[in-house]
Write a protein that binds this DNA or RNA. Structure first.
Length: 735
DNA sequence: AGCACGCCGACT
DNA sequence: GTCGGCGTGCTC
């Protein structure tokens, strides 16, 4: 009955950023020539009682909505599409693949300012960069960059000789390039010209092979995995490939897992490349992010450096996508539109017909499997650059050993020895706070969170008990809240406690703690890193963040205090993460003249994971872990989707998942396995009861076919209205 | 997700 | 008599 043709009327099909997986139809705004409207422009539309900025996806001559329900759009906000058709197709594909509403998926491709309807206006003003000398330079100096680029192209085209005329036209650009070491001037040639060549920058044979392999792929789709140990010179490989892409006049997108790594790489790139470079991350203002996005979208910038959300930046001259530290789980968005930036980057490159370069010292098991199946090309950098030797590992069996606050005596001896040689020690413990729980020795009371299935962590410096899951906190009790008489004790270890122990054991040494609590203040991490590099620190202690990217050349001893929790994780990703963590943390140590030593404290020295990893290396570990995954039918050999639910009363998620299971059985899922419903590993969090249902199939197609039919049914369930639910396709975290 | 409407308890 | 609690329903 609905489908009504409206002769002579054209209908706008608009994606609106609301959690409803459909398009909304509008009449064109008054006075707008509909035939000139293109998909990819923003439109301001009335939506219920409010206004929304939507994206026009199509103009049609019919609507399935009754004519009297159609409202005219308020305004068209752009004269040109902000997204290219290939990117709209990519986003529509991602919406289907992740089963996430199209309007929200499209919104994720835009910087906040554009989502709010601000004009897509590129300003020239707020761009600053670093000069080769590391000084902040103003816009005029940066504006020279296109000339430098043109000069490089000229040299490429004409060989080496520059005429006197070209020399005078490009004098400042040439000087800049000489300063950067990108060109070498040889001698004067007759007529007042100059012989200039592009410098051959140093690359060892492995690096050169990797560079050549990726350059050979330019202009077509291919995925390369650059497996390079820490210090093997991955960045140099990236830069030489980027130089070639830039010489071809194309753009490069570089994705990184963490904002703390962006400035480092940005400085190296700015020193090297004579082109406009922009970077984007969450510490920038909305307008700064808008400007970075627009300068890429309008082709002014040639390189964009950014985190996950930068993936969708429009590229009018796409050349290459690089995704560094590809194993890092922060490439998976963990809320809302739960996409994998790695997987979507590959889909995007395929659509654009360009190569993707994935880099890691510890590639994900998925990528290793793709190499084995010849879907990805493996490029290997097995050696550390500059003769640096790989660190040696030592498993320290701490069973029945005397410990001082988590530090065994042999480890303390190692630390003493290292400090005596004026070298630095790095100590890793992935638990912040003073102690993970407080307990009453008299009555057994424990510091439990009232809203979560978790303990309150002692934060001694703040004199607080704090929940790491919901953030609630209370003053540190001085007497037992239950029996009032028993002695309160701190149970277990956190970085804060280790810090105190180290300070008392090494009173004349400088100990620095790096965790979320000490680096919350903006710029404090950078300050600490500088202090460490200047050598004013003897012991570096910290969590996760030590494992990522930063190199500490003065460190020769690395200790991981507790690896056992990773050995027996409930999530099957645990062993992969532990192996990556061990190799990554180990990579922080050692330099050319001083090989590093890595000490792992464990009560399970015979654990097969450790034996394989330490005696045969990461690749052998990955192979055996993949073998286990294959036997268990787990990813990447099986495919998963996780339905999570939470609500204020325990019955509501239960009833919801029961109804979902009923629907699944009606839809006859074939080979799709249904695991659950079960309570989530943390059954209650922030006062909400949490449950989940895992769907798994050996065939991706079958799983997605089921989801295609199941999702509309879930939206229609009356039980769905009482809960908060979300679907996670290819989950990397089963919590 | 917002934002309405709508029908039952404690306040000026 | 109203203010406001959050259940249910809709958004072209």
């Amino acid at each position: 009955m609905p489908n009504c043709d409206i002769p002579g009327n054209l209908i706008l099909k608009v994606a609106v950023p609301v959690p409803l997986d459909r398009l909304f139809d509008y009449l064109p705004p008054l006075g707008v020539n509909v035939t000139e409207l293109q998909a990819g422009v923003r439109v301001l539309v009335p939506f219920g009682k409010r206004q929304q900025v939507g994206i026009l996806l199509a103009v049609a001559d019919n609507s399935s909505v009754r004519m009297d329900k159609l409202k005219p759009a308020i305004a068209v906000l752009d004269t040109q599409p902000l997204l290219a058709d290939t990117d709209i197709q990519l986003l529509r594909w991602a919406s289907r693949y992740y089963h996430h509403p199209i309007g929200e998926v499209l919104a994720a491709a835009f910087p906040v300012a554009l989502r709010q309807g601000r004009p897509a206006l590129l300003q020239r003003q707020p761009c600053f960069g670093l000069s080769p000398q590391g000084r902040l330079v103003a816009p005029e100096q940066l504006r020279r960059a296109p000339k430098q680029q043109a000069l490089l192209a000229l040299l490429q085209a004409t060989g080496s000789a520059m005429t006197a005329a070209a020399l005078s036209a490009y004098k400042p650009a040439l000087k800049a390039l000489l300063d950067k070491g990108l060109v070498t001037a040889h001698e004067s040639v007759p007529g007042g010209g100059l012989a200039v060549t592009k410098s051959v920058l140093p690359a060892n044979p492995d690096q050169q092979a990797a560079i050549d392999a990726v350059i050979a792929n330019l202009g077509r789709f291919a995925v390369s995995l650059l497996e390079g140990v820490t210090g093997s010179g991955k960045t140099e490989v990236y830069m030489q490939i980027i130089a070639e892409v830039l010489a071809q006049g194309k753009q490069v997108l570089v994705l990184l897992p963490e904002i703390s790594l962006t400035p480092q790489l940005e400085q190296r790139f700015l020193k090297r490349f004579a082109v406009n470079l922009v970077s984007t991350h969450s510490k920038l203002t909305d307008n700064q992010r808008l400007q970075a996005w627009l300068s890429m979208q309008q082709g002014h910038a040639a390189i964009m450096l950014g985190t996950r959300s930068a993936l969708f930046t429009p590229l009018p001259r796409p050349g290459l996508i690089i995704l560094d530290e590809e194993h890092d789980s922060s490439f998976k968005q963990q809320e809302g539109f739960r996409f994998s930036a790695r997987d979507v980057a590959i889909a995007r490159a395929k659509g654009l017909g360009i190569p993707v370069l994935l880099g890691s010292a510890t590639p994900s098991l998925e990528s290793m499997a793709n190499v084995a199946q010849h879907r990805y090309q493996l490029l290997h950098l097995p050696n550390r650059a500059g003769n640096a030797t790989a660190p040696s590992f030592q498993l320290l069996d701490i069973r029945n050993k005397r410990m001082q606050a988590g530090l065994s005596e042999p480890l303390l001896a190692e630390i003493h020895e290292t400090l005596a040689k004026k070298q630095q020690a790095l100590i890793f413990l992935n638990r912040r706070g003073y102690a993970p729980v407080q307990i009453c020795h008299g009555c057994g009371w424990v510091s439990r969170c009232r809203r979560c299935d978790a303990n309150l962590v002692i934060h001694a410096a703040d004199r607080l008990l704090r929940c790491h899951h919901c953030g609630s906190e209370q003053p540190l009790p001085k007497q037992c809240p239950a029996c009032k008489t028993g002695e309160l004790q701190a149970l277990g270890l956190g970085t804060e406690r280790i810090e105190r122990t180290l300070a008392s054991l090494f009173p004349d040494k400088v100990v620095i703690r790096l965790d979320r609590d000490t680096t919350q203040r903006k710029g404090s991490l950078e300050q600490y890193l500088e202090q460490i590099h200047d050598g004013g620190v003897d012991i570096i202690l910290g969590t996760q963040m030590l494992a990522k990217g930063h190199h500490f050349p003065g460190v020769t001893l690395v200790a991981i205090l507790d690896i056992d929790s990773g050995l027996f994780s409930i999530d099957y990703h645990g062993s992969e993460r532990l192996a990556q963590l061990i190799v990554q943390v180990a990579g922080r140590a050692g330099r050319a003249d001083q090989p590093g030593k890595v000490v792992l404290q464990t009560r399970h020295p015979q654990h097969p994971l450790l034996e394989t990893l330490l005696s045969k290396g990461y690749r052998a570990f990955a192979q055996s872990a993949l073998q286990e995954r294959r036997q268990a039918g787990l990813p990447p050999f099986g495919h998963q989707a996780l339905l999570r639910v939470q609500a204020g009363k325990a019955e509501e998620p239960q009833q919801f998942l029961q109804a979902v299971c009923q629907k699944i059985s009606e839809l006859n899922p074939g080979k799709v396995q249904v695991l659950g419903p079960v309570t989530a590993p943390m059954a209650r969090r922030a006062g909400l009861f949490r449950y989940q249902l895992l769907l798994q199939s050996p065939q991706r197609k079958e799983l997605h076919h089921l989801l295609d039919n199941l999702l509309p049914a879930i939206y229609a369930l009356k039980e769905a209205k009482k809960v908060r639910w979300s679907l996670d396709v290819d989950p990397v975290d089963l919590y």
